[in-house]
């Protein structure tokens, strides 16, 4: 009778590459040889790349939810949550990115830090945004009393910011228009997507629209060259729902009212209830969700990025 302990090292490495980062590090305590192996692995770029790619392939992607209420930032530990929360020196709870490849604990606050891969130099980069927009995010700015939304993209290779115009239809000039519609920037099927949904009560019979940005963020001022409309979702069952983010490739996570999370399947057009929880009044409005993958990609080595954070 053979058992897993007879497996050759390269097979064990393959197995470890499918595990969450926390499990990999915990298993250093199994045996001396595991400790040596794992210590070496987490420093290897190849293993980090393998772990990252397997994490993306996993059949059950993870989402973590964040919701804020007026009094304190808190992470709502929802149905899929596995995010770590730490307390900083002052006892405040913060979201953290933990870099397991360095010996001591290295913690970075997640807020306003973007990550990306530069395919030309084949390095991973972290970007800290000090003011205004960053990575790819929506931003509102005030100019001559008119409100305007733009999206800033950050080129991972030449490290420059660019601004991208929004789809024509939503190029606002008035504050009223901004109050009618809201945009949520997200990622869908590996492209940057914009979910537009009505917020004003009178507009709630209008469809939710999903626009995808073309692969190469363009500098053109013609928005038709930057965006394609992919979906238009009519109000579901007459009930008003607010889109949050995409879940896998064909489901849209939405909130309904003040206490319910639902998943809308784009193919079957069916809605299923996910979770009900009593939130603080108004808290649901701050509800955010992010798709994420864990990674051993180091923030401190080779890129000299660590010192900027």
């Amino acid at each position: 009778m053979t058992s897993f302990c007879d497996l050759p090292e390269d097979m064990l490495v393959e197995i470890l590459s499918w595990l969450p980062a926390e499990s990999v590090l915990r298993f250093k305590r199994v045996q001396k040889s595991w400790c040596v192996l794992i210590d070496a692995l987490v420093k290897k770029q190849l293993f980090a790349a393998m772990h990252l790619s397997n994490g993306k392939k996993k059949k059950t992607p993870s989402l973590f939810f964040k919701s804020l209420n007026a009094k304190h930032n808190k992470i709502y530990q929802g149905v899929f949550t596995i995010k770590k929360i730490r307390k900083d020196r002052r006892g405040h709870r913060r979201q953290c990115v933990i870099d397991p490849s360095c010996r001591d604990k290295c913690l970075y606050t997640l807020i306003r830090v973007g990550f990306g891969h530069d395919p030309i130099a084949n390095v991973y980069k972290a970007v800290k945004v000090s003011k205004g927009g960053g990575g790819v995010r929506a931003e509102e700015k005030e100019e001559d009393n008119s409100l305007e939304e733009t999206i800033h993209s950050f080129d991972m290779y030449d490290e420059t910011f660019r601004s991208i115009v929004l789809p024509d239809k939503y190029y606002y000039q008035t504050a009223e228009a901004l109050e009618t519609w809201q945009a949520e920037l997200t990622e869908w099927n590996e492209s940057v997507a914009l979910i537009y949904y009505p917020v004003a009560k009178w507009a709630r019979t209008k469809p939710i629209e999903v626009w995808a940005m073309h692969d190469q963020p363009c500098e053109s001022h013609e928005s038709t060259q930057c965006w394609t409309k992919l979906l238009s979702i009519d109000p579901l069952g007459g009930l008003y729902k607010i889109p949050i983010t995409f879940w896998k490739s064909d489901e849209l996570l939405m909130r309904e009212g003040e206490s319910e999370l639902v998943l809308y399947n784009l193919l079957t057009k069916k809605v299923r209830s996910l979770h009900r929880k009593q939130f603080y009044p108004g808290e649901m409005a701050w509800f955010r969700a992010f798709g994420y993958v864990e990674s051993f990609v180091s923030l401190t080595k080779s890129n000299n990025i660590g010192k900027f954070i």
């Binding site: 097979m11 393959e14 197995i15 470890l16 590459s17 499918w18 595990l19 969450p20 499990s23």
Partner: peptide, 9 residues
């Protein structure tokens, strides 16, 4: 290997 990983995760 993913199956083994799911057994020990």
């Amino acid at each position: 290997t993913e199956k083994v990983a799911s057994m020990i995760r």
